[in-house]
Simulated scan of single mutants.
Amino acid sequence: MLLDDCAVHREALAVLLRQRGVGQIREAWDLPSYVSVLAKTSPSVILLSMDSEITEQLLRVVATMRSDIPVIAVMTSELDEAGIVACAEAGIAGYHMRNEPTSVLLSLIGEVIAGGVRLPPRVSAILLRRLTTVAARRQTVPCDMALTSRELEILRMLEEGRSNQDIADELGIALHTVKNHVHNLFSKLGVRCRAEAATLAKALRMERYGKSRMRARLV
């Protein structure tokens, strides 16, 4: 589903995706049309325009009404830090930047439908800065100290963009067990979505690497 209140952008993207072999494409431009589409079908993914005049309102709705449908933020600007953070808090599964070609969007759609999460480097940097600020306010100890070995293992897989089903298959455990571990991870790390968890996992890894290098210099 394409969710954008700009008819020119929405229709142009729909034509482009159809030319690239994407099947049925539904279009919505406001809350009533969005609800109408959901009443008739269940899309595999939602492409939400970050260039819409009602993006903030639409973001809240798609995050709560059908949280089972992954959402990709398209037309994302690296200058819109507030919008990027809001998307992460809403559980956005992927970001397509304004300067990225259609081929990247097509690849991203496939990754997200398969259960993955994709964060461009600039988005990762913004979210990392946000998490660092939150952590500083809480004045907590390194959060990985409170995680079990299994949770650390799953956190690493979340950083790789693996879906819950992929994790369950690799670890040989039930899907609902993975979901419980992920829920516990979010609670312990103080994050709201897989994107924030993946960013924090990267930050922890970099912190440990930096400390190990510092110890090596002192030896």
Rank of each mutant, 00 (worst) to 15 (best):
L2K: 00
H9P: 08
R10K: 09
A14P: 15
V15W: 13
L16E: 14
R18M: 11
Q19N: 14
V22S: 04
G23F: 04
Q24N: 13
R26V: 02
L31F: 08
V37I: 02
L38H: 03
L38K: 05
K40Y: 03
D51L: 07
S52R: 11
I54L: 09
I54E: 15
E56R: 15
E56V: 13
Q57E: 15
L58Q: 14
R60L: 06
R60G: 15
T64D: 06
M65A: 11
I72R: 00
V74N: 03
M75D: 14
T76H: 01
T76P: 06
S77I: 04
D80H: 12
E81Y: 07
A86I: 08
A86K: 12
C87V: 07
A88F: 09
E89D: 13
A90W: 02
G94Q: 01
Y95T: 04
M97V: 10
N99H: 12
S103L: 06
V104C: 03
V104P: 04
L106Q: 04
S107R: 06
S107V: 02
S107T: 09
I109H: 01
V112W: 01
V112T: 03
I113Q: 06
A114Y: 07
A114F: 05
G115I: 03
V117C: 06
L119T: 01
L119I: 02
P120S: 04
P121F: 05
S124H: 10
S124Y: 10
L127E: 04
R129V: 00
R129F: 02
L131N: 07
L131T: 07
T132A: 12
T132E: 11
A135D: 14
A135I: 10
A136R: 15
A136I: 13
A136S: 12
Q139D: 13
Q139H: 10
Q139N: 13
V141R: 14
P142R: 02
C143P: 07
D144C: 10
L147N: 06
T148R: 11
S149N: 11
E151T: 09
E153H: 12
E153V: 08
I154E: 02
R156P: 00
M157W: 09
M157P: 02
M157R: 11
M157E: 08
G161L: 04
G161T: 04
Q165D: 11
A168T: 12
A168K: 08
D169N: 13
D169Y: 12
G172M: 13
G172L: 12
I173R: 11
I173V: 15
L175K: 12
T177N: 13
V178G: 13
N180K: 15
L185V: 05
K188E: 03
K188C: 07
L189F: 08
G190C: 10
V191P: 05
R192A: 14
C193P: 05
E196Y: 06
A198Q: 02
A198N: 01
M206G: 05
M206L: 15
R208V: 15
R208H: 09
Y209D: 10
Y209G: 07
G210H: 12
K211L: 15
R213W: 08
R215M: 14
L218N: 04
